[in-house]
Amino acid sequence: MTVAVVTDSTASLDPDDAAREGITVVPTTVIIGPRVYTEGVDVTSQMIADALAAGVPVSTSRPSPETFQSVYEALAATGAEAIVSVHISSRVSGTVDAARLAAGRVNVPVTIVDTFQAGLATGFAAGSAARAGSAGADAEQMATAAREAARSAKVLLYVDTLEYLRRGGRIGRAAALIGSALSVKPILTIDDGLVAPLEKVRTSSKALARLEALAVEQVATYPGDYDIGVQHLASADVAASIAASLSERLGRTDIPVDEVGADIGAHVGPGAIAVTVGAR
């Protein structure tokens, strides 16, 4: 059986990686001021960073059910006999709801996976589903692989300010940190599908050092191979430095450094650094 894998652009997959693994990425919508853009088509993370720095309103919108329906129908028309659709946490986005609505409108069976994750952790889950499919798994086995990858993944996020998460309604349990002393720099994670505080550190430099240490500690819990990635918004030098240090500590030379996607960037803001790890 031919099973297609679909995800959304919040998964932050490199286009080359998505193409290599046969993953179809459905773009989200990004609104900067009065203009509407499509992630991966006509908006960049730098545009998001510049707009936020200039105080221009930035917001995002899930893909519509009609968009998902068109994608599912196109995949079926090209030979897909089933689809596994892997998406950002339903607790921070309506993307899963849109995908489920679309799934009920098409003739091909679609299994929806709510990862209860965000960013690269969702991407890792989609990648696990695709690899399982390449190894001969059926749709349900692929969905199980995606869910297991999502459960194993750990998002470690540093933000310069919680303001952008607050504005976008994505702050979750980290809302408890608003009003803390300005010198306190939180390290955040995704817990049960919501943004949640993990640790509070006194300075940015200490927070970033702790982010790196936590990533190394998480990797040590995995019995075998793992995925890892470093992402940033308008903080390339810092991200590269963290990746280089992680490469030395973990004995790897393949830790990618990328800007976060425009949708995620709109909510974390300039200066954000994320390290995401997950068992393969």
Rank of each mutant, 00 (worst) to 15 (best):
Q141K: 14
H232D: 01
G265R: 07
R91Y: 04
A130T: 10
G119W: 08
V58I: 06
I31D: 03
M142Y: 03
E21S: 10
D254K: 12
I31M: 14
A51S: 09
Q46L: 09
D138H: 07
V184E: 02
S70T: 14
G179Q: 05
A11W: 07
G168E: 02
P27D: 11
G224M: 07
I171M: 07
R249V: 10
G123A: 02
A262E: 01
R91K: 14
I32C: 08
N107T: 13
S59W: 10
R202I: 05
V201H: 03
T189K: 06
K200I: 09
A130S: 13
I112R: 10
A49T: 00
G94P: 03
E81K: 05
Y37L: 12
T10Y: 04
A266R: 09
S89E: 04
K185F: 00
S180P: 00
L208T: 00
V5I: 15
A207W: 00
V230A: 12
V43L: 08
D138L: 03
A51V: 06
D138A: 07
Y164K: 02
R100M: 11
T221R: 15
A220Y: 05
R151I: 09
A51H: 11
F116R: 14
P223W: 02
D237H: 04
G269K: 09
S241W: 00
V184W: 03
R91L: 12
T144E: 15
G127S: 13
T144S: 11
D160N: 03
E212Q: 15
L156P: 08
G55V: 05
P270T: 01
E73F: 01
L233M: 09
I242A: 05
A176I: 14
P186K: 08
V230Q: 03
Q69E: 15
D16S: 13
A153R: 00
S235P: 01
